[in-house]
Structure formats: structure tokens, C-alpha cells
């Protein structure tokens, strides 16, 4: 079954064509350069770019897959969560493409997409597994028992891990997005030079928090003064990165303590971080667990993962979806972390 999927929830305009677990095309048009001069994603700027890019990106996805719109069996689209104006570009395009051809349409929860990236070739991973997704938009620890849903074990209570890294990079005078630059700078620094707090390890549960860490960095830079901060940038970056990685791995470790898991999946843009990969790999090896590192092009936001999630869900038949709206909140029915804890 040929699925055409669209994803416009944040600052990447994405379209993909999949056939089962096979990705026929996965086109990602990053707007990073457009947002770099603002030091972060500006919603109105993102929405304007999505409208400029959505049609060429869909055309490219069809072309690269060697298919035409007439060959497509169904359409999938990210309906939330995300930036509402950005989501609406994808949702409006997908609904109209599907309606004109009376195709079924599947609205997909963006985070389910990140989880479902694991079902795609190469080396697909079948449930059950624990999935850690860390990116600029989200930090999610999920229990995946079946392909069609996931249970939230923990989420960030404030900033996302990647967002914290971007803010730290900015404080240290690095560009946007900050992940790769901060990692490069940290490589030459001492991770133990500054004892930044690894937050949330004393609290019970599996939620994350990164805003306190950012504040700690702001204070430390202030204490050191401009000259000393600049001289010790590498140590600051290394220590900050160690605290982020420490918190992510500590919560993952706690989730694994139940002993019921045999596999771990690591996804999201922050999964590209070398020290995080190394820490999670060491943890999995120590416990004899399979580790699935999602391929880089399926880690960052992309539409192939949205197609992978849609393939596991019941689509809406024409014309049931015509009134579909985008949502800033999660869109699929699924268990929340509170329900999970209550049981």
C-alpha cells in the first residue's frame, strides 16, 4: 500500500512515500537557516516557509519515489502537537489532496511518529520496547507494547532537551541549531569542571526538567564574568552536556528497572549526540538489551515516520475527515502517564 505523508509541525517541511516498512522517499526541507538569525523557531516565519515549500516538497517526494499522485492509496498527516499555524499548512494540503481523489486520510500524533520510526527499514524493531525521544521540541520516554499506540512514561515538565541545548549554545555564543556546535565545543572541555545539577533524579517518576539547568548555566556565566566565561566555554559546554545526558540516561535507567524490557530505541534530533549514544549503549550492554539507534534521517522530524504510524491506524474514509482541525495537543487517543501510574 502506497502512503503519502506530510509533516509540518515545527520548522521542517517534510513529505514521504512509503510502501509498508519500505521508505520510497523521505524529503526534508529544513528551515534552520531561516530561523538562525532569530536564534530559535519563529512560528509566523515557519508557517510562511511551510506554505512556500509544501508543494515542491510533495512533488519531490512523489518524484523520488517514482510514483504519481494517482498511484497513492492513502494520505497521512501530522495533526498535532506542534505550532498551530505550521500544522494547518500540512493538514489543509493533505485534506485537499485526499478529498479531490476521495482517498482515506489518517491524522497522526507527531510523537507516535517518532515512536513508529522504529518500524521502518533498515532493521525494523518490533514492540515491546522502551523508546526515548529527545529533540528540540520534545523529550519523551515511552513504553511501546503495540505498534498502534504508546504509553507516556515521562515527558519534560518545561523545556525540551534539545531546546535547553539550543539555549545553552546561544549563551555560549554558538549558532542555531546549537546541538552539533555545543557537542564540538564540549569535546575539548572537562565534563566535571562545573557540577551542574542533574535535575529530577531525586523526584519519583520519569518526567524530565531542563529549565533549572539552563538557569544554573546563566548564573554560572554571570558569576564567572564575560572574560572567564569565554575562556572556559569548553568546560561549561562539556559540563552542561553531561548534565543533560545524565538526566536522560538516569530516567531511562529507572524505566528499565522494572526488568520487563529487552529492547531500547533512541530517537529524536538529540539522539545524534555522541555522548548520549555512548551512555545509552553502555547501559544497554550492561543489561544485555538490544539497542536500536534510529537512522539519522528518521531521527529528526520527517514524514516517513508519520507514514509508519499511519500504517498502524484505522484511516478516516472520505468524507469523514473534511472538518479535521490541527491541534496543539496530542491528537490520538492513548493512555497518559497519569493513567499509567495509577495502574
Amino acid at each position: 500500500m502506497l502512503l503519502l505523508a506530510l509533516e509540518t509541525s515545527c520548522d521542517d517541511t517534510c513529505a514521504a512515500v512509503t510502501d509498508g516498512a519500505h521508505v520510497l522517499s523521505n524529503v526534508i526541507s529544513s528551515q534552520a537557516a531561516a530561523h538562525a538569525r532569530f536564534g530559535g523557531v519563529v512560528p509566523e516565519v515557519a508557517s510562511r516557509h511551510h506554505l512556500e515549500l509544501v508543494n515542491p516538497v510533495v512533488d519531490a517526494a512523489l518524484h523520488e519515489a517514482g510514483v504519481q499522485l494517482a498511484d497513492v492509496d492513502a494520505i497521512a498527516v501530522t495533526a498535532g502537537p506542534g505550532l498551530i499555524g505550521a500544522l494547518l499548512v500540512g493538514v489543509s494540503s493533505a485534506k485537499a489532496l485526499a478529498a479531490a481523489r476521495r482517498l482515506p486520510l489518517t491524522p497522526v500524533d507527531h510523537l507516535h511518529g517518532h515512536v513508529a520510526a522504529n518500524f521502518l527499514e533498515p532493521e525494523p524493531l518490533d514492540p515491546p520496547f522502551v523508546c526515548l525521544v529527545a529533540s528540540g521540541g520534545h523529550t519523551l520516554l515511552a513504553a511501546v507494547h503495540e505498534r498502534s499506540s504508546y504509553k507516556v512514561l515521562g515527558q519534560t515538565l518545561d523545556d525540551a532537551a534539545g531546546e535547553a541545548i539550543d539555549k545553552a549554545a546561544r549563551l555560549l555564543g554558538l549558532g542555531f541549531p546549537g546541538g552539533p556546535e555545543l557537542e564540538r565545543l564540549a569535546a575539548g572541555g572537562d565534563p566535571d569542571a562545573f557540577g551542574f545539577p542533574v535535575a529530577m533524579t531525586r523526584e519519583p517518576g520519569l518526567d524530565f526538567s531542563f529549565s533549572g539547568l539552563k538557569t544554573a548555566l546563566v548564573y554560572r556565566c554571570h558569576e564567572l564574568g564575560e572574560e572567564e566565561t569565554s575562556r572556559r566555554r569548553a568546560d561549561l559546554a562539556a559540563s552542561f552536556q553531561a548534565a543533560v545526558v545524565g538526566q536522560l540516561t538516569a530516567k531511562l535507567e529507572r524505566a528499565l528497572d522494572s526488568g520487563e524490557w529487552s529492547a531500547v530505541a533512541l530517537g529524536g534530533g538529540v539522539a545524534a549526540n555522541g555522548p548520549l549514544r555512548a551512555c545509552v549503549a553502555a547501559l544497554c550492554e550492561e543489561r544485555g538489551l538490544r539497542l536500536k539507534l534510529v537512522a539519522p534521517e528518521l531521527c529528526t522530524d520527517n514524514a516517513a515516520m508519520i507514514a509508519a504510524a499511519a500504517a498502524e491506524l484505522e484511516p478516516l474514509a472520505y468524507p469523514e475527515y473534511l472538518a479535521l482541525d490541527a491541534a496543539t495537543e496530542a491528537v490520538e487517543r492513548r493512555a497518559t502517564s497519569n493513567e499509567q501510574r495509577a495502574t
Binding site: 509566523e44 508557517s47 510562511r48 511551510h50 506554505l51 509544501v54 508543494n55 499522485l69 498551530i84 499555524g85 494547518l88 499548512v89 489543509s92 494540503s93 493533505a94 485534506k95 485537499a96 489532496l97 478529498a99 479531490a100 481523489r101
Partner: peptide
């Protein structure tokens, strides 16, 4: 309305393309 325009134009382009 910026958002309204994008909904209309995204819909129009997709309809015209698909038809």
C-alpha cells in the same frame, strides 16, 4: 488573516494539483 490565507491557499493548491 495570515493563518486564514494559508489555509485557503494550501487547500486551493492541493485541490488544483490533485484535480
Amino acid at each position: 488573516s495570515f493563518t486564514g490565507l494559508r489555509i485557503g491557499i494550501a487547500t486551493g493548491r492541493a485541490l488544483a494539483q490533485a484535480l
